[in-house]
């Protein structure tokens, strides 16, 4: 496998009147071609900001403070909007949580998918109807002949997500960024969409960055998982390793919530997620950490490699 994406010490800050929100703070990782990387985190972990940065969709007050995003040799942090327009939708595609809000209610779904071709290949959208039908078949839309003429309100949430996935895969992108793509869907519909994404991935060889708060779901779909907490990477490793042998105390906490013993007290993580304007000094997790040591409130942990995994925790430093 070869490397498609490399993120180096990325910092994305929101400069607000109340202060600077360090939404993504020195995050580094890489992504292989054909790999599914899961990014898990709770609200305020910075996972969606990271997604927006990777898709070139950050708008003020969010700015890339420093760091690099190298995509196939190209530094994405240096691109202007014109260059992004050529890249986005063709080589990097995005799927968001609530498909309804990304579809225009006054155009048919098929027309909106055809617009992707129009934007990149020129000509009128109507020329691409047959291609759109092919796409609908590929995403296993029920009754594709009819659905290209359906308006968004005539479609269920699952169908609308299939429309968005059609748009995303239309130009066979190298990278698909999926930000909570199934969180608004019922679990049986989610299972179908996840199955579909897996199939499409093995067919097109696209890499997928799958972002969600649902770690249980990531354990099924992702090759590797990065756990984020309060703008920092807590841990990064293969899914099976994260599941069977989590290193970071935060990951351990999350997993014990997800794997409850029957009718026993759930292992809970005390406290709540910190403000990113004034995050705790030292390790950002230390006020909630059951294994915190005195130095955790002073020393910010570096990311270290432990048996091929990456973890940011003083327990594993020297």
């Amino acid at each position: 496998m070869s490397e498609l994406l490399k993120v180096e010490a990325l910092k994305v800050y929101y400069r607000l009147p109340q202060g600077v929100v360090r939404a993504v703070d020195e995050v580094s990782f890489s992504l292989e071609r054909g790999e599914v990387l899961g990014i898990a985190g709770e609200s305020g972990s910075g996972k969606s900001t990271l997604a927006m940065a990777l898709a070139g969709l950050l708008r003020p007050p969010a700015v890339i403070e420093s760091g690099r995003i190298i995509f196939d040799g190209l530094d994405l942090t240096k691109l202007g909007e014109g260059e992004w327009r050529k890249l986005r939708g063709r080589r990097i595609a995005v799927i968001f949580q609530d498909p309804g809000t990304y579809l225009n209610p006054v155009y048919t779904s098929g027309f909106q998918v055809a617009e992707v071709y129009e934007a990149h290949r020129g000509g009128r959208a109507s020329r691409y109807v047959e291609l759109v039908k092919d796409l609908y078949r590929k995403v296993k839309m029920a009754d594709p002949e009819r659905r290209v003429h359906s308006y968004p309100h005539q479609m269920s949430g699952g169908m609308k997500q299939r429309v968005l996935i059609s748009m995303a895969i239309a130009e066979k992108p190298d990278l698909i960024i999926a930000d909570e793509p199934t969180s608004a869907l019922d679990v049986t519909i989610q299972a179908e969409i996840v199955e579909l994404l897996k199939e499409l991935k093995s067919e097109t060889g696209s890499s997928i960055i799958f972002i969600t708060h649902d770690l249980a779901l990531l354990l099924e779909i992702a090759d590797r998982i990065m756990i984020m907490y309060a703008g920092k990477m807590a841990e990064l490793g293969r899914s099976s390793e994260i599941r069977d042998n989590p290193l970071h105390p935060y990951t351990r906490g999350l997993l014990s919530v997800l794997k409850p013993e029957r009718k026993q007290k759930l292992a809970s993580i005390p406290g709540s997620i910190p403000s990113l304007i004034d995050p705790p000094k030292g390790c950002r997790f230390h006020p909630r950490c059951p294994m915190a040591m005195p130095e955790c409130s002073r020393v910010e942990p570096r990311t270290v490699k432990v048996n091929g995994r990456t973890v940011s925790c003083l327990l594993y430093e020297g």
Binding site: S156, I189, A191, A216, L219
Partner: peptide
């Protein structure tokens, strides 16, 4: 059976899984 097979959180607690009852339709 379909609900349990589809649910990642059920899988984590070792619930029933049967690929025959993989989710389909709406």
């Amino acid at each position: 059976k379909m609900l349990l097979t589809s649910s990642p959180s059920a899988k984590l607690v070792g619930a029933y899984v049967d690929e025959k009852f993989k989710a389909r339709g709406e």
